[in-house]
Simulated assay, not measured.
Amino acid sequence: MCKVSIIMTSYNKPNYVGKAIEAILKQSFKDFELLLMDDNSNEDTQKVIEKYLKDKRIRYFRSDVKNISERTEKNRYAVQINKALSMINGEYISYATDDNIYKPKRLEKMVNFMKNNRKVKICYSSSCVLHLNYEGKLIKNVIRNAKNKLWVASCQVDHCSIMHKADILPIIYEKWHSYWDEDPQFYLIGDARFFWRLNHFWPFYPINEVLDVNYIMETSLHTQIIAEEKSEFIKRLPKQRTCWELRKYLKNLGSDR
């Protein structure tokens, strides 16, 4: 049993995944497990990951997905996260990706916030978003501030910036028969869809401090989807659902929650 279960999804980012793993392993708060969910990445990525697998806190799972048809029939990172959520041991759940870097005291500060606010089920922090070009040079720097309690968190918060209690999971599963929505219509806004589910029951409470850094590159999914020239992967995805419809629905719930 551990205090925090961290779920990291990984796919073909050999230049970043090592930094993401190291940032977690070097956390000031040590009582955690890292479920590293790799979606059958290329050899270069596997070589980087293998360097860290001797750490007993890491539980490594590699999928056997092989082709584009398999990758587009479901939201793959939702599939990977759902698998991990069925195996977690922690009291608290946090998320990471292979291009997201935790600040050294991220877990410590979030766990302390949850301990000091026992009625809170979900918290989120401010985050820094760095947009990089193909050469890896910074082209834009955005700070997502965490100032307000959110009943409409979809598309305002990234899943790498949240922590929630594990005891909310049975409630989500009972209502939707899954945790994250695996429908490929939500490939672009998978975390927003998960937050839509959470906000049916609980608000997100803010920690107004930057506790993670998120890298958005030309190869990132969000960038690929809005690019003029679409990859074969993007062409095979169904029409994507929107933030607007999720947020409108939650706003209409109003005081009914």
Results as ranks from 00 to 15, higher is better:
V157W: 03
F201Y: 15
A23C: 11
R193P: 00
N100A: 15
V111K: 02
I168F: 02
I93P: 02
D181K: 00
F204C: 04
V120K: 14
M114G: 01
E108G: 06
W244V: 14
N117T: 03
N100F: 01
P238S: 05
K248S: 15
M163Q: 11
K83L: 12
M163P: 03
T72N: 08
R197L: 11
T45V: 09
W176S: 01
G18Y: 02
L169C: 02
K30Q: 14
W176P: 00
H200A: 14
K66V: 14
K83D: 05
N141F: 07
F201R: 03
L85S: 04
I49W: 04
S154D: 03
N15S: 11
Q27D: 01
S63G: 05
N199S: 01
L188Y: 07
E22D: 13
S255L: 12
V48I: 05
I24P: 09
N89H: 12
Q27S: 06
L211Q: 05
D191V: 04
L35K: 10
Y124C: 00
Q80G: 08
A153L: 10
D98Y: 04
W244N: 13
H159W: 11
Q27H: 00
T97C: 10
P184I: 07
K235A: 01
E218M: 15
Y124R: 09
R144K: 12
I81N: 08
I101D: 00
Y92V: 00
G18T: 13
H200L: 15
N112W: 07
S178Y: 03
L150S: 00
E73T: 06
Y77T: 12
L35P: 00
K165M: 04
N117H: 08
D167E: 13
K235N: 06
M8N: 00
E229P: 06
Y77P: 15
N208D: 13
N214C: 11
N141L: 09
S178D: 14
E108P: 00
I171R: 02
V142H: 14
P184R: 00
K147W: 04
V129C: 02
I168L: 14
E43R: 13
F29P: 04
V210Q: 06
I68K: 12
I122G: 12
K30L: 10
Y95L: 15
N89L: 12
D98P: 01
P170A: 08
K115E: 15
K26G: 11
L150F: 01
C155M: 01
